[in-house]
Design a protein around this nucleic acid. Sequence first.
DNA 1: TTGATTCATAACCATGTGGTTATAGATCAT
DNA 2: ATGATCTATAACCACATGGTTATGAATCAA
Lengths: 114, 114
Amino acid sequence: MVMNQQNLDLVFNALADPTRRAMLARLSKGETNISTLASPFNISQPAISKHMRVLEKAGLIERTRKGREHIISIAPAPAKQASEWIAFYTSHWETRFDAVDAYLKQHNLHNPKN
Amino acid sequence: MVMNQQNLDLVFNALADPTRRAMLARLSKGETNISTLASPFNISQPAISKHMRVLEKAGLIERTRKGREHIISIAPAPAKQASEWIAFYTSHWETRFDAVDAYLKQHNLHNPKN
DNA sequence: TTGATTCATAACCATGTGGTTATAGATCAT
DNA sequence: ATGATCTATAACCACATGGTTATGAATCAA
C-alpha cells in the first residue's frame, strides 16, 4: 500500500468518468497520439485536452512529445495500487480466493465440482 | 466483467472521496450503525448521511434497520468488479503475474531468487 | 408522556467539473 | 512563406458535489 490518500483521490476520480475509462481501455492496446485517441469521441478538442490532464495528474498516463504530436501511453502502476486498495478494504479471504481462482481458470486447472 | 458503465461511474466516484474510503476501511472490520461509523469524522450528521447515500447508490454498502439505528455493512462485489475493470485495462500479463505472486507469498511458497 | 438519540430531508452556499467557443503556439507539408 | 494539423489555454456556462444549518420523523429510555 504505497499510494497516499491524495493520489487515490486523483486516481479514483479520473476513473469515475466513462470517457476517460474508454481512453484507458483504448490505450491498453498500445500508445497513440492524442488525436487518434480522441477520434472515437464526439466531444471538442479542448474537452479531450482536459481529460488528458486529469489522467496525467492522476499518474495514469505518460506523455512524450514527438514533434507536434503528444504520444500517450498507460502507466499501470497507480491503477494497480488503486486496485490493491480495493483488495485491502474488501474482505481479505475473498480477494485471495479470487486471485487463486482466476489463475486456475486461466490455466484450465479449475474443477467446477470443488 | 459484469458491471456496466454507469455502475462503474458510481463506484469509482464513491471511492474518490477520502472520507468515504475511510468509512469503507472502518466497515471492513465489521458492521456498525451510522453514528459509530461517523464518530471519527469532524463533519455534520447530514454530511455523513449524504456519504452513506453515495456509497449505497454505488452498491458498496448494505443497510438494515434495527429500531432507530441503521446497520451498515460492506457489499464487496461492486468494489471487486471495479478492481477487475482495472485489472482488465492494465496489461494482462502483469496483473496475472501479480495474482500468482501474491498467492505464493501468502502461502510462503515464494522464492525471491526466481 | 417527555426527553434524548438516530437518522433523513430541505434549503442554501462555495467550489469543482465537463462541456463549449475562440484563440494561439508549434510543427509539418507544400 | 503559407496553410494545415496538433495541442493548450482562456473564458464562459450548466450542473454536480461536499459542506453547512434548520427541521422533523421514529425510536428508545425515564
